[in-house]
Computed example of a mutant assay.
Amino acid sequence: MTPFADLHHRPGRPLLLPNAWDHASAVALAAQGFTAIGTTSLGVAAAAGLPDGAAATRAETVRLVRRLGGGDFLLSVDVESGFSDDPAEVADLAVELAELGAVGINLEDGRADGTMAPLAEHAAKVAAVKSAVPELFLNARTDTYWVGHPDPGPEALRRLLAYQQAGADGVFAPGVGERDAVARLVEGLAVPLNVLWTPTGPSVAELGALGVARVSLGSLLYRSALAAAVATATAVATGGPVGPVPGYAEVRALSER
């Protein structure tokens, strides 16, 4: 088992995975003691002026991993649906990212048009990646809770079981929030379950008690950074107080890490 996989097998102590969108955000998080960091596809896409979830940011994602991979933190990469419908092409991308230093990827079955990939199609991508680069931790995500499926819980479990069977090391169900629904997924699976933290949902400690192995922050930090930037500009314009911010030298030092 790899060091990154080990972090998913600590009963009651889920891995809290913050998600970065550029070099500075990743290094700043690592400096605060986070040993594993993910990327956020929304943050990467929005920073480049491109749509998220539309297979438009393959080059930007690879470029970011080239900067961050092999550093002093473990890097998991959000690759949307793999930027391709061809399992072989998705596997080639996974190999490239692993060679650049990524230790995991997040692979989703949601599509840009609000539909979901056929189960067999996404399972084939999972199997192709694990065959090509077995040491890479593959977190297979289902979007049943996000696409308005009429029965998201049972459909999520059906899909996650198929991805587990295809070789996924962990599975992800963003949008599940009710404690009973989380517990049912944990009980039905043999691989670690990842959920997305929400302000109105259970705390990290409560999720750990339910058996959740990984808690992701998704695009929360990127959206929070945008809100802080706008709030700061507005405060300056209106003469309001500006909160504490890192100094120039502190931020510049991040690029030297």
Rank of each mutant, 00 (worst) to 15 (best):
L207S: 04
A127L: 08
R223W: 09
L210Q: 08
A47H: 11
G211V: 15
G188L: 14
V182W: 12
F83E: 11
S203R: 04
A26S: 06
W146Y: 09
G33E: 14
L161S: 07
R252A: 02
L74P: 07
V245Y: 03
L97F: 03
Y248V: 13
A162W: 02
W21T: 03
D85N: 13
R159Q: 03
R257T: 11
P192K: 03
W197A: 13
P174F: 05
R10D: 13
E250N: 01
L15Y: 11
G243Y: 12
A30V: 15
D180M: 01
E99D: 08
R252I: 07
L74E: 10
P174D: 07
Q32D: 10
T57R: 07
P199K: 12
G239A: 13
T232H: 08
E121M: 03
G71S: 14
D113M: 01
D169L: 09
I105E: 02
F34D: 14
S255I: 14
A213P: 08
K130Q: 12
E178M: 06
G188A: 13
A162V: 09
Y163T: 11
A55Q: 15
E135M: 07
D143V: 03
A123K: 02
A205I: 05
G69Q: 10
G49Q: 08
A123F: 01
A91T: 03
T234D: 10
T200L: 07
D109N: 00
D109L: 00
V44H: 00
H149P: 01
H122V: 05
A117G: 00
L136A: 01
T200I: 08
